[in-house]
Amino acid sequence: MAPKSQPPKTPVPALGKPLRRAFFARSVHEVAPDLIGATLLFNGVGGVIVEVEAYHHTEPAAHSYRGPTQRNMVMFGPPGFAYVYRSYGIHWCVNFVCEKEGSASAVLIRALEPTHGLAAMRRRRGVEEARALCSGPGKLTEALDITHAHNALALDTRPFALYARTGKIDVVAGIRIGLTKAVELPWRYGLRGSKFLSKPFPDTR
């Protein structure tokens, strides 16, 4: 019997400098595009961030729009912490809190290009294809094993680790996905041409 073929190994890219909490103490509209190309690891498993969405407390799609609740309280705290919530009662979603304390703005991490710990991701997700592992906010939390137990944890200490992007990239912007409010705001950012996006961006060139 011929040996079972293994998925081809993807070269692991070099990591940039670690991102500290101060990185997030800026406008959510500066942080969000700057996260494209950064690397997110959780207990050593993760990859390059290729898609995010920005949410600001002044617009009705943000969970913080109507003020603090038990669910969204971490958004009103200092920047550089994880906000993890359940979407539609099914999937966990991970967000990075930005801006000064009280601003309650955050970046939703929508998709990663898997680079670290693919075997663990495939086991957790039950799929082999690399592009299907983290191409959506619920997929990537399942692949990385992020749950509500990790809500309000600092992003610059274990189990989280974030590293700045290295080199130049092409960031594209468009409207956010799956919303019924503030649908016209172009606050979704992605790595142009990435095959790991949750949904392609319209060609704006």
Rank of each mutant, 00 (worst) to 15 (best):
A132Q: 15
I175C: 11
Y83K: 11
P18T: 14
H91R: 08
R165V: 05
C93K: 09
G46A: 13
K168D: 07
C93D: 08
D203K: 14
R122I: 01
F42I: 09
S87V: 09
G47C: 06
A152R: 11
G138C: 03
I109V: 15
G136M: 03
S103C: 08
W187H: 02
C98A: 08
G167F: 07
L162H: 13
G138Q: 11
P68I: 03
V171L: 04
A22K: 13
G16I: 10
E113L: 03
P79M: 12
G16V: 15
P79K: 12
N72W: 01
K139W: 02
A161N: 10
G80C: 07
L108P: 04
H148I: 13
P186E: 01
A104K: 12
T69N: 04
T141E: 02
N95S: 06
K100V: 13
E184T: 12
L19N: 09
A32H: 01
H56W: 02
L185T: 14
G174K: 12
L179S: 01
I36T: 08
N95E: 10
E128T: 14
R192F: 10
E184G: 04
E51A: 01
E101S: 04
G44C: 04
V50W: 01
I36R: 04
Q6M: 14
A154E: 07
D156A: 03
R66L: 06
K100G: 04
L41G: 10
T141R: 10
G138W: 02
E128Y: 08
G136H: 08
H116I: 01
F23Y: 05
R165A: 12
T180V: 13
V74P: 02
A154Y: 02
T166S: 14
F42T: 11
M121I: 10
V171P: 04
V48I: 07
T39L: 12
M121P: 03
V31F: 05
R158T: 13
L144C: 06
I109K: 08
L140M: 15
Y189R: 15
V28S: 15
D145R: 10
R125L: 00
A32L: 00
R158V: 15
